[in-house]
């Protein structure tokens, strides 16, 4: 396994429901990342379809299936992670991520926690994932796990992935602006995300790679700010705020060793989990 590799953060905006148009943008970015020698190129949550789909969520799965094949074919020698609407059974839909490589779909990971508050209404459309869906992918570069947006606002998915062996956890996201107040101009959402990503990285001693959408979808606006956080909570790459961007950041797995030698990451009291299960 390579100890040092690069990841391309493809911080794009999507056209709602227009998979064909979004596919074009994916193919451009995959090619750009490939040419730059990146090991991974990562797109935001529901990148092939847009996020604020509402009832279009029922109507894009077939187009996504075709688009996945095209992106997989384009992913020659590079791992691509993107977001799409999956239809595992007729009429059942999932907000999902796919890992693609050398023409193949290596895996599909649905979202565990579906937000259903404020502007979010994912439970109306999607079936949530369960622990049976937890997967750690053994790639050429790293053992990795994939989460989707709200999954990271709960400690369990990242903790489970780390305990299953993931050293790098990707979080693809569609986080919209909310509470654009305050003298320093960061929204409430951004401030929370910074804290949560840092926490997940430190508590699990993993690299957290966050790719958010940038751009408008109906009234909402996704604020971008994609980032790579090292296992000691240091921001090692950062994409623009509000704008689409393409940033390449470095992941150095040697850092895991140093950080884990000075961490209680390996300690795990099952009793807490037994108690939580009963509550």
């Amino acid at each position: 396994m390579a100890q040092i590799f690069t990841v391309a953060l493809a911080q794009i905006g999507s056209r709602l429901g227009n998979v064909e148009k979004n596919l074009e943008k994916h193919l451009e970015h995959v090619e750009r990342a490939r040419k730059s020698g990146a090991a991974f190129v990562v797109f935001p949550e529901l990148s092939l379809t847009g996020y604020m789909l509402r009832d279009l969520a029922y109507e894009v799965a077939d187009d996504c299936k075709k688009a996945l094949k095209s992106v997989a074919t384009a992913s020659k020698g590079i791992y691509t992670i993107l977001g799409f609407v999956n239809e595992p059974r007729p009429g059942i839909y999932q907000n999902a991520a796919a890992l693609l490589y050398n023409g193949k779909i290596l895996g599909v990971v649905p979202k565990y926690y579906l937000p259903n508050y404020g502007p979010f209404e994912e439970k109306r459309y999607f079936k949530e994932a369960g622990v049976k869906d937890l997967k750690v992918f053994n790639t050429k570069y790293a053992k990795l796990g994939i989460t989707i947006c709200e999954d990271v606002w709960h400690p369990e998915p990242c903790e489970a992935l780390a305990r299953l062996g993931a050293d790098v956890i990707f979080c693809i996201s569609s986080s919209p602006i909310r509470g654009f107040y305050g003298a320093k101009g960061k929204t409430v959402g951004e401030r929370s995300w910074e804290k949560i990503l840092g926490t997940r990285a430190i508590e699990n001693t993993v690299y957290m790679i966050f790719v958010n959408k940038a751009g408008a979808e109906d009234e909402e606006y996704f604020w971008g700010g994609s980032t790579i956080i090292s296992p000691d909570g240091v921001e090692v790459a950062k994409a623009k705020h509000l704008d689409e961007d393409f940033v390449i950041g470095e992941v150095d797995l040697n850092r895991l060793v140093r950080v884990r030698r000075f961490s209680s990451f390996r300690d795990h009291h099952q009793d807490f989990h037994n108690l939580l299960r009963r509550l």
Partner: peptide
């Protein structure tokens, strides 16, 4: 009611 398509439709 349940005509819930997004404003930006393709």
């Amino acid at each position: 009611s349940d005509w819930r398509y997004p404003r930006q439709w393709a």
